[in-house]
């Protein structure tokens, strides 16, 4: 099995510009085509440890390409296409790599209806995962980044994939999207943080991605069991603190914030209730990332001691 890091740059570019570069991400395989250098740069920087997927079958065929015709020269735009279909409006070309990330998330969240998909970050330690659902701006991605830089395994910073048949959670370890101030917070938090080139003025402000830890990528075929559902909230000067919350409330929130809860019907209801039944549910306020990590570690140690 070849990893992306073993492919030389020229070969990688000719794949991207030609038939496409196949990679595996969690349970899915993607074939990427692109004629934009920053996309190749982003893939080299973030995806070095990913398996090259050289098969005749890919789950998603995507491309991020420059606009054709006069727009190519005038406005310098990038377009994302899923097998020829464009779900988004074009973006400035310097957002091409984030666009690929958003596009791949879109592919999974709109098509993988064999899974219940919740909008939440998910990280694992000692075999159990903590699901971190929260509205944008609550510090979910920052906390997720802090945890994976402290020995937690990254499953995903955006999409929690739950198999309704087994209740297990599948990894989709990919770059962690950081916005605005969290970029410098994470850079200062750990010397091991490898953060890619920032794209400015996106719809979400400044965006940069944290490279997923190699170990998380190597273990991206390994599902894990649900342990906790924790709603993080960053608050200035707040002490890091967990407060238990009701399972019923948690379930309702998850159902409303799942990408495909209603599409799954009864399967979604059963998967959701079973998930919540297996989890301890908390609200979590924090200010300093190290304190937050400390509390999460104690939760994981406690769970290890009792199971």
């Amino acid at each position: 099995m070849l990893r992306l890091v073993e492919v030389d740059r020229q070969d990688l570019e000719s794949r991207l510009e030609g038939r496409g570069l196949g990679i595996r991400t969690g349970p899915f395989t993607v074939r990427v085509q692109s004629d934009i250098p920053s996309v190749a740069d982003g893939l080299v920087f973030h995806y070095g440890q990913f398996e090259l997927w050289e098969s005749d079958f890919h789950d998603f065929h995507v491309s991020v390409g420059r606009s054709q015709g006069i727009r190519r020269w005038v406005s310098r735009q990038a377009n994302f296409a899923f097998d020829g279909f464009r779900p988004f409006l074009p973006l400035p070309v310097d957002q091409a790599f984030p666009m690929l990330e958003w596009g791949m998330n879109w592919c999974v969240s709109t098509h993988a209806n064999h899974l219940l998909i919740i909008h939440a970050a998910v990280v694992e330690r000692n075999g159990f995962v903590a699901i971190l659902p929260a509205p944008p701006g609550s510090g979910k991605s920052t906390l997720c980044a802090g945890l994976v830089l402290s020995g937690w395994r990254l499953l995903s910073d955006e999409l929690t994939l739950i198999d309704p048949d087994t209740g297990l959670i599948y990894p989709l370890a990919r770059p962690v999207s950081l916005k605005n101030q969290s970029i410098s917070v994470i850079a200062e938090f750990s010397g091991e943080a490898r953060i890619g080139v920032a794209a400015h003025d996106t719809a979400k402000g400044m965006v940069a991605h944290l490279r997923p830890p190699a170990d998380s990528v190597w273990r991206q075929r390994e599902p894990a069991s649900p342990g906790w559902i924790i709603f993080p909230k960053w608050q200035k000067d707040a002490e890091a603190m967990l407060t238990p919350r009701s399972q019923a409330q948690t379930f309702i929130y998850l159902a409303q914030n799942a990408f495909n809860y209603s599409q799954l019907g009864e399967r979604g209801f059963l998967a959701g209730t079973e998930l919540v039944r297996q989890c301890r549910c908390y609200d979590f306020t924090y200010h300093a990332l190290p304190d937050a990590v400390h509390i999460f570690n104690s939760l994981a140690d406690e769970k290890k001691a009792t199971t």
Binding site: T29, S55, F57, D59, H111, A112, N113, H114, Q263, L264
Partner: peptide, 12 residues
């Protein structure tokens, strides 16, 4: 590799 695509559409 093909199976989940079919299953996911049937769910929908």
């Amino acid at each position: 590799a093909v199976r989940w695509h079919l299953k996911a559409e049937q769910v929908l």
